[in-house]
Structures are given as structure tokens and as C-alpha cells.
């Protein structure tokens, strides 16, 4: 989301304004956007056409503080995205274990076949590592010590693992995994945006790379 802290950006700054939509003539919502996933989430365009706001609606009452406010709040936002990703991996594992224990092919449950067992062993390992890493991030955040580099690591890595995990789990459902009635298909589609919002994963890597000083 924040690509670079260009000096000119810092000087120019950003401000945050709070709009109460019920009392803002000139404010309009666009259509509810159609998306690949997260279909129960209302995601929209918003339009502001000569919307008049009193100074009381300027957050904090001082202009130009938004960029500073953002930089301070971003680690938490990224940690929250990662927490959702780790939880989704737990859920995908649970769903896939239940399905493969039930589903039989070539005379036995899929869960007794080596490929299934090894794939799900990998998923369980990754989900566990994600949880332990995030526990450390949460503990750091509670102490006010979660820095941008670590939060960026959590965001990109967990969401990448989430997408990889959904793909592996869906595969074990075979054709049913592609059908909307199976939650794994929804989880697969919903995971995709996690690598894009909250600061794209490429931006996360750029932020981490800045700490690579010789």
C-alpha cells in the first residue's frame, strides 16, 4: 500500500477526514463491485462531489498528520491480515482431513494414501509455523515493538502460504473442490486477495529488503 517514503511525500503529507455518510450531501456510493471471491463482503466505489465538512471532522485536528498516523498503524493492519490467513489454513486443513478420511478411491480412503498424507503433513507443518511466528508478532505488538520489517514478513509469507495451502487442499477434493457447494472452493477464491490488499506482497518484500544493509 505505501510504496515508498519519498521525501516529497513526507513534506506534502496526507490528512485523514471522517465523513458521516448520512449527513454528507454530495457523497454517493457506486455499485457493489463483483469480485472473484469475498462475495459476502460489500466492496465499493465511493464518490465525493463538493462534500462540505467542518474542521471537527479532521482526525486529530491537525492537517498533514495522516502519513505519520498511517506508518504507525500499518504493522497492526498487516498482522491482522496474517492472522486471518493462518486461521484460514487451520480451517482448510480441518475440512480436507475430514473429506479425505471419508472419500474412498481405489478401495480405500484418500487419507490412507501416501500423497494425501504427505501433502497434509506439509500443510499442518506450515500452518503450525505460521501460528508460532504470529504468536511472536502478537507478543511484540503488545509490547509496542512490532516493526515494519517483521510485520511485512508476516503479511507476505502467511498470505502466500495461505494461497498455496488452499491450492493443495482443493486438489485433494478433486472435481468437488471446484464446486461452489464445497467450502474449499470459496476459501480458495477468498484467499487470493490477501496477497493484494493491506499492502501488496511485493511492497512487503520491498520494505523488508530495505533492512538488508551490508
Amino acid at each position: 500500500m505505501v510504496a515508498k517514503t519519498d521525501p516529497s511525500m513526507g513534506a506534502k503529507g496526507i490528512s485523514l477526514m471522517v465523513v458521516e455518510t448520512a449527513d454528507a450531501p454530495g457523497f454517493a456510493r457506486g455499485r457493489n463491485l463483483e469480485k472473484l471471491g469475498l462475495k459476502s463482503q460489500d466492496t465499493s466505489e465511493l464518490f465525493f462531489d463538493n462534500v462540505r465538512l467542518p474542521p471537527e471532522n479532521l482526525l486529530g485536528g491537525t492537517e498533514g498528520q495522516g502519513f505519520y498516523q498511517l506508518m504507525k498503524s500499518l504493522p497492526q493492519e498487516r498482522l491482522v491480515v496474517a492472522l486471518g490467513g493462518a486461521a484460514a489454513m487451520d480451517k482448510a486443513l480441518e475440512e480436507t482431513v475430514a473429506y479425505t478420511a471419508e472419500r474412498k478411491a481405489f478401495g480405500k480412503p484418500l487419507l490412507e494414501m501416501q500423497n494425501t498424507r504427505f501433502k497434509l503433513a506439509e500443510v499442518k507443518t506450515v500452518a503450525h509455523i505460521a501460528r508460532v511466528f504470529l504468536d511472536d508478532c502478537v507478543a511484540k505488538h503488545l509490547r509496542g515493538e512490532l516493526d515494519a520489517t517483521t510485520a511485512s514478513m508476516a503479511k507476505w509469507w502467511v498470505t502466500q502460504m495461505q494461497c498455496d495451502t488452499m491450492d493443495e487442499c482443493l486438489q485433494l477434493f478433486g472435481g468437488y473442490g471446484y464446486m461452489s457447494e464445497y467450502p474449499i472452493s470459496t476459501m480458495y477464491a477468498d484467499a487470493r486477495v490477501q496477497k493484494i490488499y493491506g499492502g501488496s506482497n511485493e511492497i512487503m518484500k520491498e520494505l523488508i529488503a530495505r533492512s538488508l544493509t551490508p
Binding site: V19, G26, T43, L46, F48, V51, R52, N57
Partner: peptide, 22 residues
């Protein structure tokens, strides 16, 4: 303040009663 502009991909966009605007 007189605000002009447009935003997109806004989560909770249809239901929001409060919008924190950049």
C-alpha cells in the same frame, strides 16, 4: 473543507455510516 474525488475497492463500502477519508 470541500471534498472532491473518488475512491474504489472500499471494504464495507455499501454499509458504511462513517468513512475515514484520505
Amino acid at each position: 473543507y470541500v471534498v472532491n474525488g473518488s475512491k474504489t475497492f472500499i471494504t464495507n463500502g455499501q454499509q458504511a455510516d462513517l468513512v475515514i477519508l484520505w
